[in-house]
């Protein structure tokens, strides 16, 4: 399961071993393992993804979202 599989409004927890995949700059913006992500919105052509993680509102491309593994919540 990755962020890319979430439906709008759903949440998940970023898994620890995503650490090597997530680029440093994304980590620095708060996208850390163990944190909850919520998918707020998907842009009209299914890309990019608009997420809220660790208090930050970020947009990332689907190719990135597809790489970040999560455990789905709820």
């Amino acid at each position: 399961m990755t962020i890319g599989n979430l439906k709008v409004g759903e949440c998940g927890i970023i898994e620890e071993f995503s650490l090597d995949i997530i680029p440093l700059s994304l980590l620095e913006m708060g996208c850390l393992p163990g944190k909850e992500v919520k998918l707020l919105q998907i842009a009209p052509l299914n890309d990019p993804y608009y997420i809220k993680v660790n208090g930050s509102h970020l947009a990332i491309r689907k190719e990135m979202a597809d790489q970040i593994t999560i455990t789905k919540l709820g």
């Binding site: 680029p23 700059s25 994304l26 913006m29 990019p48 608009y50 930050s56 509102h57 970020l58 947009a59 990332i60 491309r61 990135m64």
Partner: peptide, 10 residues
Amino acid sequence: KSLFVIEMPN
């Protein structure tokens, strides 16, 4: 090789 992250400010 691109990294695309933008902040969506208030």
